[in-house]
Simulated scan of single mutants.
Amino acid sequence: MRSLILAGVMMFGAATACLADGLYWVVGNLSTGKCDIVTSNPVITGDIWFEDGPYNSLADAKLARSTITVCPEKDPTAK
C-alpha cells in the first residue's frame, strides 16, 4: 500500500512538471507600448500593467493577443 501511494505521488509530481512547461502569458508593456508574449508567470509591477493567461500554446497566446482591445493591432516589429 505504501508503494502504491508513493507511486501516485511521483506520478502527480511528474504530471504537474509537464503541465508547467509550454505555458504562455500575454502582458502589456508600458515601456514598449506593445503586448508581449512571455513564458514565465508575470508579476504586475513597473512597466508591466496587465497580464492574461496562461495559454497552452503559442498559437493560443497569439490569438488572445489579437482579441485584447488594448493591444495594438499590428506588432510594429513584425514583417
Rank of each mutant, 00 (worst) to 15 (best):
L19Q: 15
N56Q: 10
K74G: 09
K62C: 01
N29C: 08
T32H: 03
L58I: 14
N56F: 15
L63C: 06
D60G: 07
T39C: 01
L63Y: 13
K79Q: 14
G13K: 07
S66H: 07
G28C: 03
G13H: 08
G22C: 04
D75M: 01
V26E: 02
P72R: 08
L4T: 10
A20H: 08
T32A: 06
T32V: 06
C71V: 00
D47K: 08
M1Y: 12
S40K: 12
C71Y: 05
T67L: 13
A20E: 12
V38R: 02
A15C: 09
I68E: 05
G28S: 08
G13A: 15
T67R: 14
D52P: 01
A61P: 01
G46R: 01
T67H: 14
A7F: 08
N41Y: 10
G8D: 09
L63F: 12
D75S: 01
K34T: 11
D36P: 02
L6M: 12
D52C: 14
N29V: 06
T77F: 11
L58E: 11
M1T: 06
L19A: 14
V43W: 10
V70H: 08
E51V: 06
K34V: 05
T67S: 12
Y24R: 04
Y24G: 00
M10Q: 12
T77K: 11
A59M: 11
L23T: 06
W49D: 13
L30Y: 09
S40W: 06
T32C: 05
